[in-house]
Amino acid sequence: MSVYEYIVRTKDLSRVYTMGDTQVRALDNVALDIRRGEYVSIMGPSGSGKSTLFNMIGGLDKPTKGTVFIDEVDMAQLTASELAFLRCRKIGYIFQTFNLIPVMTALENVTLPMVFAGLTTDTAMDKGLGLLKTVGLGDRYDHKPTELSGGQQQRVAVARALANDPAIVLADEPTGNLDLRTGKEIITLLKQMNEEKKVTIISATHDLKMIDVSDRVVWIRDGKIERIEERKDIDIQVGQMEGEEQ
């Protein structure tokens, strides 16, 4: 197995939420290795812990126990500013609810991470326009999120996630608030970015359309990894499923 270079590794990862008197174990000793450049889908029903796993890998929340390594660096050892640097330059985030800054235009949303990264305004503008063109919104750069459809907002979010050429794009239910066709477009876009830019894509989802493009699918249930399927094992399943749909 050591032929692969792992960009994300988790070890004994656990997260316990305390709600009143009860303790909810959202993640239970999860060990997951993600290879550089692959497209991984983390599948599971809602409440299975996939969003919690997403938050841990993205450094958005701290684990109760265990460690997350990004490029073999223990995330718990990073200072606040190193963590901010990591979020800014190494990881791009995509959310179910798009989470664009409402007061900013599409272009301003895309350039914000570049401003944080220290790019000059001109460079950021050029790059931002280029990214918006890549996601098919070249003429919509001046629109506020409220003036864009859900699919268009998610495209802006994809462009924003790619702003600083991250090594990893983390997507939490990216198609959850989109209709079938728009969802499919976003999946295709993510796959295209994965192939062209060699970005590792980690997507928490329960959208079965995602299986189609994934290199590996991690099935998670009750905070534990149930099974991990490789691309070659999935193909047959997808064929069956598409047959069933029609």
């Binding site: 993205g58 958005l60 606040a80 500013s81 901010a84 640097f85 979020r87 800014c88 330059r89 985030y93 959310f95 989470n99 664009l100 800054i101 409402p102 914000l112 991470p113 944080f116 990264a117 924003r160 600083n164």
Partner: peptide, 15 residues
């Protein structure tokens, strides 16, 4: 939510 998003994009607490 906006604050959380900004932090995901790399904003420091001080920003």
């Amino acid at each position: 939510k906006e604050i959380g998003t900004m932090k995901c994009l790399g904003a420091l607490d001080s920003f």
